[in-house]
Design a protein around this nucleic acid. Structure first.
Length: 393
DNA sequence: CGCCTTTGACCTGCGC
DNA sequence: GCGCAGGTCAAAGGCG
């Protein structure tokens, strides 16, 4: 585990350096472009271009603003008030729902950063589902939960239970727990929201999982021409780390990442995956389990997620990921691995931790991804009825 | 007594 | 406008 921890740290360091290098390169390219256009401009325009230090960041800002305007989901009154006129913002701040007690209200947003705002706003609706075999009513994830409701869902004889986090007053995180109709031993836990309080080490892994997975789904590094998540991207991202059957999905009405840790012989059995979901069978590298045991790692990746909202670039992202991918393992080794992980993942607690490891890697390996523009693309993708599915190699 | 679960009522969004 | 389904609220009761 120590060795793997060191390896992951090295990987993270490499990704961070690549991210910085790419950022500098892009800024340089944009500066070059500015200069070239300045040559063709009139003298008046050249005078304006002399404020080059402020010009380039302005372009970044414009990207976020444009996407925010283009995205209907981000044009709600809430978002307009936070980035809009000051008096409206004050009025909202005086309303009883403006504090942190409101569901999924994320306080302390930076009004000067519309990109972060857009990301946060979209994150409110992002969900992360974990499917695991468990006889217990719900998997233990280190947090304290209070049940506030139970409903019978259509098409499932098993009731769906609603829980909210009670570790802090006003914590917006909620989760839904429901058993699979076809296989009652399979427990599906869906997390929504971000904790607004410190978490114990036991809860840190899964908490970062929800944030990481949601960020991955909502970030802009997986676009395709028609707005669908690029399956090749997912496959290339996940394959080197996997050995268990797992599912990444983007399902309506909310963008959802589903981690299927049931290791079912037939991954489609009992899943009832709608056609809008994308499935990626991937193998979990056993060495990556170490990241679960180190509570610092999810925090590190969580910080990377914060940085995601500041930058974007599909090609750069994919190139970086390819650079950090370890070589593929031999088939015999993979088979042995599969048998071992099949037994290991029978433990629901370990499954939760495993989910944390997977999504932490997914979210942390792409620190250069994510801006408001592409968030818009992915949200629209998951809520559309376009049918597309694939199976990774 | 405080915390929790249960459960019917209520709210909201969506499709027709 | 209506019905349906998902989600939430809150009163009532249980439990340690």
């Amino acid at each position: 585990m120590n060795a793997e921890n060191q390896r992951l740290r090295g990987m993270l360091s490499q990704v961070s350096s690549n991210y910085t290098a790419l950022q500098m390169r892009l800024v340089g390219l944009m500066q070059q472009q500015k200069n070239s256009t300045a040559h063709d401009s009139t003298q008046e325009h050249e005078k304006k271009q002399e404020n080059g230090g402020a010009t380039v960041p302005r372009q970044f800002l414009d990207l976020g603003l444009a996407s925010e305007i283009d995205d209907p989901s981000n044009s709600s009154s809430e978002e307009k008030t936070t980035s809009g006129s000051p008096h409206k913002k004050i009025g909202r701040a005086e309303s009883p729902e403006s504090d942190s007690c409101g569901p999924n209200k994320i306080p302390k947003l930076n009004p000067s950063n519309p990109v972060d705002q857009s990301t946060e706003a979209t994150m409110k609706k992002a969900r992360v589902s974990v499917r695991a075999r468990s006889e217990a009513p719900m998997i233990s994830d280190g947090c304290q939960w209070r049940k506030y409701g139970q409903k019978m869902a259509k098409g499932n004889p098993c009731p769906r239970a609603y829980y909210r986090c009670t570790m802090a007053v006003g914590c917006p995180v909620r989760k839904q727990v429901q058993r699979c109709a076809e296989d009652r031993t399979i427990l599906t836990t869906t997390y929504e929201g971000t904790h607004n309080h410190p978490l114990p080490p036991a809860a840190m892994a899964l908490a970062s999982t929800t944030s990481a997975a949601a960020s991955m789904l909502l970030s802009g590094s997986m676009p395709s021409p028609d707005g669908l998540i690029n399956p090749n991207f997912l496959a290339r991202t996940l394959l080197p780390y996997s050995s268990n059957m797992a599912t990444i999905s983007a399902s309506a009405p909310f963008p959802t990442v589903t981690l299927d840790l049931t290791h079912s012989p037939n991954p489609l059995q009992c899943q009832r995956v709608p056609p809008t979901q994308y499935q990626v069978p991937f193998l979990v590298h056993p060495q990556n389990f170490a990241s679960v045991t180190n509570p610092q790692m999810p925090q590190v990746f969580g910080q990377a997620l914060v940085n995601q909202s500041k930058f974007s670039g599909l090609q750069s992202s994919q190139n970086n990921i390819e650079q950090i991918q370890p070589p593929l393992h031999h088939q015999s080794f993979t088979n042995t691995l599969s048998a071992a992980t099949a037994a290991i993942t029978a433990d629901p607690n370990f499954s939760a931790a495993l989910a944390a490891a997977i999504t932490s890697i997914m979210g942390g390996s792409r620190p250069d991804s994510g801006n408001a523009t592409n968030n818009t693309t992915n949200v629209n993708t998951s809520t559309s009825n376009k049918s597309s599915s694939f199976m990774g190699n």
